[in-house]
């Protein structure tokens, strides 16, 4: 698996969520993702970027274009230095929310992408990686 291209953008304001969505849509199109896969990815980006802003106090969005044989993919890593998640199992339950959201952000985003990976600990920030393949 090769990384063909990569970049990083900050998520610190609400406007950054919209810009991140647009940037990821463009990347997904360039990767040749089908429309439904594109839409799922962009929606997951929207959810996770907002989570990062609301619960993690903002952070970085790092993207990578992957190539693995014939298939191309896009990986997006959200990283914040916020409070982290104490009970990951609880956070990954549908409908659970520590704020006033719908509680679909994490679990919903996980269902929208091919690969989902989360690393977090209280006081250690949160790192979520999602990948969508063509």
């Amino acid at each position: 698996m090769n990384i063909k291209d990569q970049g990083t953008r900050p998520i610190v304001t609400e406007q950054d969520i919209v810009l991140a969505r647009q940037a990821c849509r463009k990347l997904a199109q360039d990767c040749g993702l089908r429309l439904v896969a594109q839409t799922k990815l962009v929606t997951a980006v929207s959810e996770l970027a907002r989570n990062m802003l609301v619960y993690g106090g903002g952070g970085d969005l790092h993207w990578e274009i992957l190539e693995d044989g014939l298939r191309k993919g896009i990986r997006i890593i959200f990283h914040d230095e916020g409070p982290g998640i104490a009970d990951l199992q609880l956070a990954m339950t549908d409908g659970w929310t520590s704020g006033n959201g719908l509680g679909l952000g994490l679990t919903g985003a996980k269902r929208l992408v091919n690969e989902f990976d989360i690393e977090t600990a209280p006081g250690q920030g949160t790192r979520i990686s999602i990948t969508q393949w063509s």
């Binding site: 429309l35 439904v36 594109q38 839409t39 799922k40 929606t43 549908d94 269902r111």
Partner: peptide, 14 residues
């Protein structure tokens, strides 16, 4: 609502 949006919303659980 666009088809891709509808599919995504359902997958999201909404």
């Amino acid at each position: 609502m666009q088809p891709a949006v509808a599919i995504t919303l359902v997958e999201l659980g909404l």
